[in-house]
């Protein structure tokens, strides 16, 4: 499953993995802001902006196939918006690519640009997720001022996801094994509702047991980590490289 794959990838040991989570988070946020602010629809600037996250994926040893599949899985919503947008702006423009010239519509160019920017920013967030453990990201959030209760909630949620999703998968497998055809909306609905409610009830029981166990171990609402966040020279170099890259993007956006 995707979250287990990402969890496994985030435990590798590469240059990007060793960086402080805060520097990677800041870099990805700044990169996303710059890419979104590039209103220009030229393919050149989007291609240049793809180099950074592409390099992050490779340096972080993230399989490119995984990134491509993830972008493919999440693109339908943006595709619908981009394609429908293309129908509303039909002013004809001529685009040139090397020696080739092509007549198309402004809306079609806009649609391609929206989707290309989506793919580029997705690559950046995949690179961040696959090279940073969630516990490190949470520590970064905490040091950046996110409320304690929310950080704790995200940490606990991620801890239980594996447990509860595993249970849901068992239920789905059991349903698939017993049901060989579509049963009609009413029965499908009642089956699904019963499954969800049953999952809810068992989740509550598990929560109660886990809560008792945590309280018995002296849990006071604070999640402590043995790993200390440190901002090293490597982080400074990384952020300097990101700043230089952003400056390059902003400098060339009026040219290509």
């Amino acid at each position: 499953m995707h979250h287990t794959v990402m969890d496994h990838l985030s435990m590798q040991d590469t240059f990007l993995h060793r960086l402080d989570a805060r520097s990677k988070l800041i870099a990805v946020v700044v990169f996303t802001i710059v890419v979104i602010s590039l209103r220009r629809t030229g393919v050149g600037i989007i291609a240049v902006s793809a180099v950074g996250p592409f390099a992050m994926l490779l340096v972080g040893r993230v399989p490119l196939k995984l990134a491509a599949l993830q972008i493919g899985c999440l693109c339908p919503f943006i595709m619908i918006i981009a394609i429908s947008s293309a129908f509303y702006d039909r002013s004809v423009v001529t685009i040139a690519f090397g020696a080739y010239e092509l007549n198309t519509t402004q809306g079609a160019i806009g649609a391609v640009a929206i989707f290309a920017r989506f793919a580029v920013t997705m690559m950046a967030i995949i690179a961040l997720s696959a090279t940073t453990r969630l516990s490190d990201l949470l520590a970064a959030f905490s040091s950046l001022g996110l409320p304690k209760i929310l950080v704790m909630q995200i940490g606990l949620l991620y801890r239980y996801i594996f447990l509860i999703i595993d249970r849901a998968c068992h239920m789905l497998g059991a349903r698939a094994g017993r049901k060989l055809r579509y049963l009609g909306l009413r029965r499908e609905l009642s089956t699904s509702a019963a499954m969800i409610a049953s999952l809810f009830a068992t989740s509550t029981q598990t929560a109660q047991r886990v809560s008792d166990a945590m309280m018995a171990r002296g849990f006071d609402g604070t999640i402590r980590s043995l790993k200390k966040s440190t901002f090293s020279i490597a982080d400074t170099v990384f952020l300097a490289a990101v700043c230089a890259y952003m400056a390059l993007l902003l400098a060339v956006k009026g040219v290509i």
Partner: peptide, 20 residues
């Protein structure tokens, strides 16, 4: 703080319920 784990479980439940 006792109910904190309950909230965490409910978050995971929402994830799992979205799979069903």
């Amino acid at each position: 703080s006792e109910k904190a784990s309950l909230m965490g479980i409910f978050g995971a439940f929402i994830f799992a319920a979205q799979m069903l």
